[in-house]
Structures are given as C-alpha cells and as structure tokens.
Amino acid sequence: MRASTISRGLDLLALPLIAIGMALAFLYVPGERTMGDVQRIFYFHVPFAMSSFVGFAIVLVASLGYLKTRRDAWDVVAEAAAEVGFLCCTIVLLTGPVWARSAWGVWWTWDARLTTTLILWMVYAAYLVLRAYGAEDAKLKRYAAVLGIVGALNVPIVYFSVKWFRTQHPSSTFFTREGLPVPAMAFTLRFCLIAVLILFVTLLLKRIQVGKLEAERDQLRYELDARE
C-alpha cells in the first residue's frame, strides 16, 4: 500500500515538474551567447544522459541481486530499469544531433560522448532483444542478469576506448566543456535534472508494477491450464 502511495505521489509530481522545467528552459533562462537558442536542449539532454547511466547502475545491482537471491523482484527491477534507461538513452541520441547540427554543422560526429552513448544504447538494445526473444522463464531471467552484468561492467571500458580513440584521431570538432556562465543557467539545469530524475523514478515504478502484474498473469494462466 505504501509503495503505491509513493508511486501515486510521484505521478502527480513528475509532470508538473517537467512542465516547469520546460518553461524555465525555454522562457526563463537567457539564450547562450555563441550557440544561441539551440543550446536550450541541453537542459533536457544532460539530465536524460544521467538518467540512462543511473539505469545501467540499477540494472547492474538488480542483476547481481537476482543471481544471488533468485528473487523475481530483482529481475523485475532490472528489466524495468533497462527499459526506462533505454528510453532515456534514446532521447539523448535524438536530442544530441539536433544540437550538433547547428553547433558543428553535422548531425553526427564520432565524438567520444556521442559514440559512448551510441554503444551503450546498443548494449541496452541487445539486453532488450534477449529479453524479448529469450528463453523459458527461469532461464531467461538468469541469462538477462548475466548480460546485464556484462553490459554494465563494460561501460567504463567503452568510455576509455572511445575517449582514447578520439584523441588519437583529432577531429575538427572539439567538444570543450565550459562552465555554465549565468547562475540562471545553473539553476535551470539543476531543476531539470531533478525533474527528469523524478520522471525516471516514476516510470521505473510504473514499469515495476507492470512487471509484477505480468508475473501474476502468467501464474494465473498456468493455474487455469492445470486445473482439472
């Protein structure tokens, strides 16, 4: 009961916060001097990128938890985190090029961050493909847990390989990180970060509930088949 109350509370919180975040990003905060209005996409791009990393971390922990305890609850959490994380990662990959097109003049460049995100997106996709076309129930959960662990442990290796890859092949487009100059910008970014993380948690809880209902449905279906 309490979990569902929290979940409902977050539902009510998430959408207004996102709406306010949008208002802040598009109306309140001043446009960046050199990049112009397109820079505003960062206020959502960055939080979603962070959420997708959080998703990976949850997949790792829940997968380890599942293999250790074999409790279905862990598996449901891992699957939910992967799906929501995948969604966040997709948003990152869609919003990034919009900015890149106007800043660098190209939709895509093999920059370290972009490439890392693309690879992580593919790892998420591989995990979801396994879950979608996998195996019998108990096997599938173990398989998914192992792949989840492999995928998450690979994240730092992906990051370093891509980073060094870029430094070995200097490209014309450098992604330099500058501090956000105006306090309003920092505030907006922080606000959006919290809003998106709350949205992430809301979706995660929703997906976990769906996962539990699915398990219940499968059990009922089996009972029905087995009934004499």
């Binding site: 690879i119 593919m122 995928g151 992906v158 390989s161 890859f165």
Partner: peptide, 11 residues
C-alpha cells in the same frame, strides 16, 4: 548480444 559488448576491445 556479443558485438555491442565487443566494440571497445575491437577498437
């Protein structure tokens, strides 16, 4: 499932 994991070491 293998290639996405393998990319960094392929690189």
């Amino acid at each position: 499932i293998l290639y996405p994991i393998w990319i960094p070491i392929l690189v």
